[in-house]
């Protein structure tokens, strides 16, 4: 059996009396793609935060690439090769999309040195600029490459975050509701980008999403969370026909 890329076991997190995660165990293989769905408050974002170290779980552990990472700070986990987008945008205000990507290239490459800055070698290298341009082209943002992100609408802002998460490229991409606020054209870009990074670069994808059409278009496997517990985990079709899932989540809404 191959080593899973990301593995969690027994993840539990409470906020006061609210149980956000309860004994969540997950495995994601390299190059795999998993959709995490569930009603609001099911603990999807908390799961992301626990995996990335934004929130410290009360119990359980997280391993990435066969190595326990739950004692590492967030930025170290990111440097191991996990790219992430946020449910609520976390863009760098005042910077342009190109600057977002260039600084991410630099950080992920670990090439920044203070002395280089001081003697004027700190600016983005031609290679970094080229890679940034490639990514901008990939998500269709060439035309706004030098516009501060405040001026972009929500959809394009999400694409900037997506591009930022793709720098490296990472081994694992964790997307938190990437399609909210996107128009149809932007959704199409999102789907095609995800397809391309999965197949061309072998990036594993974890996707939290309400939009089931998008989820089923992108992922092979679905995990359903409800009140912090995993109530179903398996191939998309199997899960969607599961009775428990239907009653807990889909039955009422659709």
């Amino acid at each position: 059996m191959i080593e899973p890329l990301l593995e969690t076991a027994g993840l539990t997190k409470r906020f006061g009396r609210v149980v956000a995660l309860s004994d969540v165990s997950l495995r994601i293989d390299a190059g795999g793609s998993v959709g995490v769905v569930g009603p609001n408050g099911a603990g999807k974002t908390t799961l992301f935060d626990c995996v990335l170290g934004v929130v410290k779980p009360d119990a359980g552990w997280v391993a990435f690439d066969g190595r326990r990472i739950d004692r590492l700070p967030t930025f170290r986990r990111a440097l191991l090769g996990i790219g992430r987008t946020f449910q609520r945008l976390e863009l760098f205000g005042g910077m342009t999309p190109r600057e977002h990507l260039c600084v991410t290239e630099r950080v992920r490459g670990g090439r920044g040195r203070l002395w280089k800055d001081v003697i004027g070698l700190g600016r983005p290298s031609p290679r970094e600029r080229r890679e940034a341009d490639d990514l901008l082209a990939l998500v269709g943002l060439e035309d706004v490459a030098d516009v501060p992100v405040e001026a972009l609408n929500l959809g394009r802002s999400r694409l900037v975050e997506l591009a930022r998460a793709l720098v490296g490229p990472p081994e694992l991409l964790m997307l938190d509701e990437p399609s909210s606020g996107l128009d149809d054209a932007e959704r199409a870009i999102l789907v095609s980008v995800l397809e391309r990074v999965r197949h061309e670069r072998g990036v594993a994808v974890v996707l939290v999403e309400h939009d089931l059409d998008l989820v089923t278009a992108v992922v092979d496997r679905l995990v359903v969370l409800d009140v912090g517990r995993v109530i179903a985990d398996g191939p998309v079709d199997t899960v969607l026909s599961d009775a428990a899932v239907r009653s807990a989540y889909l039955g009422s809404g659709r």
């Binding site: 934004v54 700070p73 967030t74 930025f75 992430r84 946020f86 863009l91 977002h100 992920r108 975050e161």
Partner: peptide
């Protein structure tokens, strides 16, 4: 500049 823009975002890029 990134850190000023978003602490969580900058942690997420490493």
């Amino acid at each position: 500049a990134a850190l000023r823009g978003s602490e969580r975002g900058s942690a997420a890029i490493g």
